[in-house]
Write a protein that binds this DNA or RNA. Structure first.
Lengths: 154, 154
DNA sequence: CGACTTGGTTCGTCAGGCGAACTCACTCTA
DNA sequence: TAGAGTGAGTTCGCCTGACGAACCAAGTCG
């Protein structure tokens, strides 16, 4: 906030959180991934207040993460669908879910994600296509656009 | 979806968000990854109000994500460090950062994460150790603990 | 001593989240 | 054709919680 050039606008995490960073939005996106698309279904599933849900959906549509589509003409009914930009959030949601699975669930994961082709549990990893290997967060460094080079997550 | 007992407490994303899901906490964790550990440094960097930062740090310590450690005795100074549980958030933060890089930055990523061993940009992918291959979000299904099997993120 | 730094707490204000009630367009039942 | 029901909101008034400002305490420096 003080340093002008450094992080306020130049951090992608912060930019992402300007769209996703309130108590409801990520849960709305989770439901969108789960196929819940209609206003009242979202409201019931989340237990969110109507005005708040209306506001969040409007913001998400404006941000380009959801798309409002008419799926029925006769009673005019719209649904909210993931755009490609919204669908690209899946690694984030999966990472969040796996963190909760590992650190917050007493009796094993409530839901296990599996590789559809074989039915075995999946993992999420960092990949270097140059070295052609996967690695953990200990081997990450960062190369800033216009900052000095520092270590990334330790 | 329908099942009442199913998702409210049983969704790991929701559990994670009970710890991380307000406007500041993820930014605090980002700064923790960046090596910002002291109260006033965090306050200055984030532009957060003092009482709010004190409250968030207390909650994060209670949740086991940060650890408060005395690093100087003479003027008694504490710092907040990532616990293993906190460090395990790196895939989540990286995913969020990469999403912002891809969809919200006009002029290329502000910061690029690289594979420390070779200096090339890294990727993040889903891995199946059974099939020994990486794949995208299109090949994910989910096997719930006590729900019917449904598709995961599409 | 007095100024300064770090790491808070207390306080009063004000924006924003909440449930309840209302609206509107449409459909279904009788 | 009247009345109930549903989906998708908007309006309203209350109350929590985020905010900046001020205050506090422990220690250090000059």
């Amino acid at each position: 906030m003080v340093d002008p050039a450094s992080d306020s606008p130049a951090c992608s995490i912060q930019r992402s959180l300007e769209i996703l960073g309130d108590r409801w939005t990520i849960l709305i996106m989770r439901d969108a991934f789960r196929g819940i698309r209609r206003f009242d279904d979202l409201r019931r599933d989340l237990g969110i207040a109507r005005p708040v849900l209306a506001d969040r959906l409007k913001n998400l549509v404006e941000a380009g993460v959801l798309e409002r589509r008419r799926y029925c003409e006769h009673p005019p009914r719209d649904e909210y669908r993931l755009t490609p930009m919204g669908a690209a959030l899946s690694p984030t949601l999966v990472a969040l879910m796996r963190w909760g699975d590992e650190w917050l669930s007493d009796d094993g994961p409530p839901t296990t994600l599996i590789h559809e082709a074989c039915g075995e549990p999946l993992d999420q990893a960092f990949v270097c296509w140059h070295c052609n290997e996967t690695f953990g967060s200990g081997d990450i460094a960062s190369r800033p656009g216009h900052l000095t080079t520092t270590r990334g997550p330790e």
